Computed example of a mutant assay.
Amino acid sequence: MKNYLFILALIITLSACKKDNAIKSTPGEVVGTWELKTYMTGWIQPQSYNPGNGDRYIFRSDKTYTKYLNNKVEKQGTYTLSFTGEQEGTKFGKIVLTNPDYADVFSIKENTFIIGTSAADGPSWEYTRIK
């Protein structure tokens, strides 16, 4: 009987243990102002942008964003981030923006935020946190 209870307790303990595969994100990790630093694609050399260029995103904690182009509002809407992985301190996943609807991959590490991927000749935009 002792063996039966021990095995039952072991099964209950092991079944209660669940590995958490979710990527932990710091609240507000993307919240702030991000200025365009580099545009990249597999077709041309990366294009660098000077500080103060007027191309930026502002992501807010209420999940709204504003995108500026040449210091003028280009888009506004809501955003969601889904973290899917992490490697050497860089977290990555999927970003979905509304107005108009747009989804792409992203990566974020400290003060660098990249939207898109040029790995398959697609475009990507590297932003630097300025606030």
Rank of each mutant, 00 (worst) to 15 (best):
N3L: 09
Y4G: 03
L5T: 11
L5Q: 05
L5I: 12
L5K: 07
F6D: 07
F6M: 07
L8F: 14
A9W: 03
A9I: 06
L10V: 08
I11A: 15
I12A: 14
I12Y: 06
I12W: 00
I12S: 02
T13K: 05
L14E: 00
L14C: 09
A16T: 12
A16C: 14
C17V: 09
C17T: 02
K18E: 14
D20A: 08
D20T: 07
D20Q: 09
A22Y: 04
A22P: 00
I23W: 11
K24C: 04
K24S: 12
T26S: 10
T26R: 14
T26H: 04
G28Y: 09
E29R: 04
E29Y: 08
E29N: 09
E29P: 00
V30L: 13
V30N: 02
V30G: 00
V31N: 11
G32V: 03
G32Q: 08
T33C: 01
W34T: 01
W34S: 02
E35C: 11
E35V: 08
E35R: 08
L36F: 03
K37P: 00
T38A: 11
T38Q: 14
T38D: 08
M40C: 01
G42W: 10
G42E: 10
G42A: 14
I44V: 05
Q45W: 01
Q47A: 13
Y49L: 09
N50R: 14
N50G: 05
N53G: 04
G54P: 09
G54T: 03
D55S: 04
Y57F: 15
I58L: 09
I58Q: 13
R60G: 01
S61V: 06
S61C: 10
D62Y: 02
D62Q: 04
D62T: 02
K63M: 09
K63R: 15
Y65H: 12
T66E: 14
Y68C: 03
L69W: 01
L69F: 09
L69K: 10
L69T: 02
N70Y: 04
N70L: 08
N71Y: 11
V73D: 07
V73R: 05
E74R: 09
K75A: 13
G77M: 10
G77I: 07
G77R: 06
G77A: 03
T78H: 13
Y79F: 15
Y79E: 04
Y79P: 01
T80P: 00
L81I: 11
L81M: 13
L81W: 03
S82N: 14
S82G: 05
S82H: 03
S82M: 05
F83Q: 10
T84Q: 05
E86F: 02
E86G: 05
Q87N: 14
Q87W: 08
Q87P: 00
T90Y: 02
T90Q: 15
K91D: 04
F92D: 11
F92H: 14
F92C: 04
F92Q: 14
G93Q: 06
K94G: 01
K94A: 08
V96R: 12
